[in-house]
Design a binder for these strands. Sequence first.
DNA 1: TTTAATTTTTGACTTATATCAAAAACCCAA
DNA 2: TTGGGTTTTTGATATAAGTCAAAAATTAAA
Lengths: 157, 157
Amino acid sequence: MNKNEFLLTQGNVCRHLYFLEKGALRGFYNLDGKEITHWFGFEKDFVTSFHSFITGEAAVENIQLIEGCTLWAIAKETLTELFNQHHDIERLVRIAYEKYYIRLEERYVNAQFKAAKERYEELIQQAPHIVERVPLGFIASYLGISQETLSRIRSRF
Amino acid sequence: MNKNEFLLTQGNVCRHLYFLEKGALRGFYNLDGKEITHWFGFEKDFVTSFHSFITGEAAVENIQLIEGCTLWAIAKETLTELFNQHHDIERLVRIAYEKYYIRLEERYVNAQFKAAKERYEELIQQAPHIVERVPLGFIASYLGISQETLSRIRSRF
DNA sequence: TTTAATTTTTGACTTATATCAAAAACCCAA
DNA sequence: TTGGGTTTTTGATATAAGTCAAAAATTAAA
C-alpha cells in the first residue's frame, strides 16, 4: 500500500489485526478540527485500532500510512479460532498485553507530569526512529504539544 | 487492615494480586517530593502494583488504604499455576487486560488533551464514588492538577 | 528548472494552570 | 468543648505552553 493511504477511517469497525512487515504508519483522531496522532507503527509491529477491534464498535480513529508499507492482515474470527485451538497463542497475546499496558502506563505518567521538553528528550532517547522518520507535526501531537512549541524546543530555546 | 496502612511501599517487589472485598485504597508514587496518586481501588476491584507484579522488579509506587479494608491476596506463583491448569482463567485475565487497556487509553487521551475542568467534570460523571469518598488532594493529583486549581474549579470559577 | 504546495520556524501576544503564602474550615482526640 | 492537626479555600504572582499570523525552508510537481 502507498503513502498517505488509509487502513481504517473513523466510523468503521476495525475487524483486523495487521502485521506491518515494512514501512511506517500512524493512528490519529480528530479533536476540535485538529488531527491528534496518538501512536505510530513500524516494521514488525502488530497494529490495529485497539478499541474498535476489541469491542466491535465503530472506530473513533484513523490509521494512515506515513510511508509505503507491506502489510499482513488477520481477521478477528481467525484469531479467536486460533485462541481456541492453541492455548499457547492466547498466552502469547496475554503476555503481549502486559507489555503494552506497562508501556502505556509510562506514557501516561509522562504526559501528565513531565514538561514538553522532557517528553521530547525522552522520545529521542527511547524511540529515535520516530524522530527520524516522522514529520514534526505528527510528533508534536503525539507528544501532546503544539507544533510551534516543538519547533522551539528543537532549536533549544 | 486499617486506614492509612500500606499494602506495598516503593522499593519492594509486589508479589501478590489483591482482591478488595471492602474499602478503598490508592496507588501513588513520589515525584519531586510530591505524592502523585495515579489510581484508586474500591470494592470488588482486583489491585496490584501492575508493573512490579508483572516484571518482578521493585515497585516505584506505594499502595495505601484510604479506608479500613477487607482484602484477599493471591500469590503470583499460585496464579501462574492456575493459568497452566485452567485455560479459562487465562482467557478471563486476557479479557480483563483488554478492558483495562482500553480504559487507560481513554484516561491518557483525557490527560493530554482535555482541560482541568473537563477532566474533573468527566470524573464526576464516570466515577462519582471517587469524588464522594476520596480527599480532594488525592483527586487533584489523580487528575494531574494542583489542589488549589481543583478547589477553584469546584467553586466553579 | 521554476513554480506550487507543504512543512517548519519565528514573533507577538494570551491564557490556563502552577506556585507560594496565608486564612478559613473541618475533624477528631483528650 | 476546646485546642491541634489536617484539609480546603482564597489571593497574588509567575510561567509554560497555546494561538494567530506571517516568513522561511523544504519538498513535490509540472
